[in-house]
């Protein structure tokens, strides 16, 4: 896929529809500062869905009623994709948690006409809800299909609204929402650290999904902090690490560690372009 790699390279300093140059990751200055990211160990992930419900609870995600699922408009900022391999009796199910990859070179950011989505200086792909006008260009541009459009206003029958997290805006009809890496939790830790006059400790920030994961398959980290356990893990497991659909050149902030299957029949160079989920 050399052509798509070239394409990605040429997009590295792409020109947005508003005529402004969107800086690349390097220009934003990640190498020195914080770059929030995650290491996802597929060999630990069991597909148990604990992260999915943790995310729903933390981020005021609307109830995915049956009708929404049937319409394929269910919102799951993190979802477990399941892939089948082979046939009975050798069938295998494979699981992968997919969430916003917080790409360093995000296709969604360049297409937003109102800068509702942008890259901040901590490596987060931020969605500003009150800017979003619902063009859905970003969702179309996202190769991971992790941006969700609100086709309806969410409803929580009384007294269910008591559970809503006051730190997270309830999204109304007509705007896009997606994984924020639990930015409200990052902010909380930052304010606490500042109040206490100290630096953020390694591993102190935990998004809801990583916090709940029983097998510790999801580990949140500052990718630029060489001291952080996940960064060391990614280093130590260099042979297992990869990024999702890396040939698109999106520079994801999520590093996956490969599933180990002693009985896998591997094909060499299987990185063929394929259709995306959803």
């Amino acid at each position: 896929m050399s052509s798509s790699a070239n394409e990605a390279a040429s997009r590295a300093s792409a020109v947005s529809s508003m005529g402004q140059t969107i800086p690349t990751d390097a220009e934003v200055g990640h190498p020195e500062g914080v770059r929030w990211g995650m290491v996802v160990d597929l060999d630990r992930c069991t597909g148990c869905q604990a992260c999915v419900v943790a995310c729903q609870a933390e981020n005021n995600i609307a109830l995915n009623e049956e009708q929404r699922v049937l319409e394929r408009r269910a919102k799951t900022w993190i979802r477990i994709e399941r892939y089948w391999e082979g046939e009975f009796p050798n069938a295998k199910a494979r699981f992968i948690p997919v969430l916003c990859q917080h790409c360093g070179n995000a296709p969604c950011e360049t297409v937003c006409p109102v800068w509702a989505t942008y890259h901040n200086n901590e490596g987060l792909n931020v969605q500003v809800y009150n800017r979003c006008i619902g063009t859905r260009f970003c969702a179309n541009g996202c190769p991971y299909s992790v941006r969700y459009f609100n086709f309806w206003n969410p409803e929580w029958p009384e007294p269910m609204n008591n559970q809503l997290n006051p730190d997270v805006t309830v999204r109304t009809k007509g705007i896009i929402e997606k994984c924020t890496f639990c930015i409200q939790r990052i902010n909380r830790v930052q304010v606490t650290a500042k109040t206490e006059g100290r630096e953020i400790r390694s591993g102190e920030v935990q998004p809801a999904c990583a916090q709940s994961c029983p097998t510790s398959a999801l580990v949140f980290c500052d990718l630029n902090d060489p001291e952080s356990a996940p960064a060391q893990l990614a280093e130590a497991e260099a042979g297992r690490s990869y990024t999702l659909l890396e040939h698109f050149g999106t520079d994801p902030g999520i590093i996956y560690l490969k599933k180990v299957d002693p009985h896998a029949e591997l094909e060499e160079d299987s990185h063929a372009p394929v259709e995306t989920h959803a």
Partner: peptide, 26 residues
């Protein structure tokens, strides 16, 4: 009755190696 699943059908991306990279060595 349509089944309310989140999987994609027909599973065009059922080429699992693309998304889930596996290795055999330990």
């Amino acid at each position: 009755r349509q089944l309310p699943t989140i999987e994609v059908l027909p599973n065009a991306r059922n080429d699992v190696e693309e998304v889930i990279v596996q290795i055999t060595n330990e």
